[in-house]
Design a protein around this nucleic acid. Structure first.
Lengths: 339, 339
DNA sequence: TTGTACGCGTTATCAA
DNA sequence: TTGATAACGCGTACAA
């Protein structure tokens, strides 16, 4: 079908291997033949066949991205396109292509990863999430397949290259910010408790409270799905309490949107009646009314660093384990006030 | 490195070709040897190598997705993850993998497509947008490379398989809806005018007005970027008019978010002072306050159908050109009222 | 500096 | 029903 190295070789009157070397810009080829070969390539409109190259090289120049099961939820969150853009940019810089897993359920995704990996479709993968006892992670570790993770590993922190924020501190910071405003009844609305990010932020929240000498209340700690519906449910539960909180730490802007919605429905005013801080600072943190005070975790950078790291690892297998902490900063808007 | 067909063959005491046939479930192999081979595969944990298979087959089982240049804008819109999910699901059903282009600028994307296509990385591609005089489209057509498009082709409508809504009618419908509410001064806020979707919806808007005997006003037709900032700018311009509109047709929910924001800043009330209808019905059409009356274009289905179509085309090159029209429906919320 | 020959892991054709 | 053997397009030792 397509133009191959042989066609070029014939036209340029050289051996196929010479053409191959010209493509690789091998210094041991004379400038003269290089030019001759390049001319032939141009004339024929030659483009190297990646598949054949991959087979010969045992390397594909493709990165695999692994989303958590329940892709529908994950994709809905603006977090996803933003990390994707970050990874994509890093990939582009180094001429890597990017492939996605396609399953919906955990099982499908797992199968997809096995196919990607064992099928030799990708040189390395990036895990877009971190959860407790993850089968995919375990598999990748067992096979010693190159990967990096976005988020903090649940186990083997020292052995897994990962890109993360200091979520513990971030959560501690925002909780202290609320404490500083005079709040004492502060609730925490987390996501799925199997996600490490939930755990880390919860720990930060708890630390801030205990440092301040405030007892933790079990009924102030909720875990919901990473959706606006999650936020809605949480609010209902909290408002039903006999001593409802005066401030909320919500783990994700999307959930916060649900929170704000429900609050406005039941005529609870933000921030006068209740203060809210959130995480991720995606687009609608700004667009919501009131604007949401949110921790900007630099999602793009998370992706970009992860992309760079996995490529380094692929190209240099002896690359040491790394932990990259991306800075965060709190963006204050109108969702908090003194008590 | 990995386990190959040869290892399996050796263990099962058959020829490599036999193993290959077992994998393909070739009916001319006896059940007995099939079982023997499968046992060996299990024992060794064999997984077929896609790269080798691709080379032999001249087919990769990979679909390429092509985003428009200015990926940053495109990715911000919830439209993207949703189509992606649709395509992804179709791909998964047929065991296809999905690869993304990675460039930012038009030029980079174009180069990426050429690499994908000529490099033999993908069997077919889906264009996630439709614009006037698109270089990528032209390239794909010239090479007779299998592709489908989401949106209506600018040219050669009969020759390009595409998945689209009837945007003309949808825009006409919503405009007539506003007319029915008594509005006569209706403005249109479009996206980039090179995008076919902008053109189609504009035509629908114009038709509705002219059918109603209302003269078009040039100053009521604006083109902005597909971002909330676009919506903001548009509003400023419109409000500066000596006869500002009483209703707006906005081409995208994200822009509408900007519109609402700006309106609320300048204390113009929706829907009492001005009515707004929008398109796409993404998550925050519902979450905005007031809720946005928006045309649900079934984004997921757009993607799913496109995925199915490109796979059909790849697997059967003689497949006739198709045009798939995905139905839409108007979701009424609180952003419109009688004048 | 360049050419020859083989291997990468499959599939497919042709014999047996 | 199965086994040799030749592709698929490229990279690379080894030879020249």
């Amino acid at each position: 079908m397509g133009i191959t190295i042989k066609d070029v070789a014939k036209l340029a009157n050289v051996a196929p291997s010479t053409v191959s070397r010209v493509i690789a810009n091998n210094p041991r080829i004379s400038e003269k033949t290089k030019e001759k070969v390049r001319e032939a390539m141009r004339e024929l409109g030659y483009h190297p066949n990646f598949i054949a190259r991959s087979l010969a090289n045992q390397s594909t120049q493709v990165l695999g991205l692994i989303t958590p099961g329940s892709t529908d939820v994950f994709f809905q969150n603006p977090f996803f396109p933003t990390v994707l853009r970050g990874i994509s940019e890093a990939a582009h810089e180094k001429q890597y292509a990017v492939q996605l897993t396609t399953g919906q359920t955990d099982e499908e995704i797992y199968e997809g990863v096995v196919q990607m990996v064992q099928g030799g479709r990708v040189d390395g993968v990036v895990l877009l999430y971190s959860r407790v006892e993850d089968r995919v992670l375990q598999y990748l570790r067992e096979r010693h397949f190159p990967f990096v993770m976005i988020g903090k590993p649940y186990e083997f922190v020292e052995e897994i290259t990962h890109v993360d924020n200091d979520n513990f501190r971030a959560a501690k910071d925002v909780t202290e910010y609320l404490l500083g405003l005079g709040h004492e009844r502060i609730a925490f609305i987390g996501g799925n408790r199997e996600l490490v990010v939930t755990v880390e932020r919860l720990l930060g929240y708890e630390k801030a409270l205990s440092d301040a000498g405030i007892a933790l209340k079990e009924e102030y700690i909720l875990y919901e799905e990473f959706l606006k519906e999650g936020g809605q449910e949480a609010v209902c539960e909290l408002l039903a309490l006999e001593e409802p909180p005066t401030a909320l730490v919500v783990i994700d802007d999307l959930m916060t949107l649900g929170v704000l919605n429900t609050l406005s429905e039941v005529k609870v005013k933000v921030p006068t009646d209740i203060s809210v801080v959130s995480f991720n600072n995606v687009l609608f943190a700004e667009m919501a009314s009131p604007g949401i005070t949110s921790v900007d975790i630099n999602i793009f950078d998370l992706g970009y660093q992860a992309g760079k790291s996995i490529i380094q690892k692929v190209e240099n297998p002896t690359e040491p384990t790394k932990r990259i902490i991306v800075p965060y900063n709190i963006v204050c808007r109108e969702s908090c006030s003194k008590i």
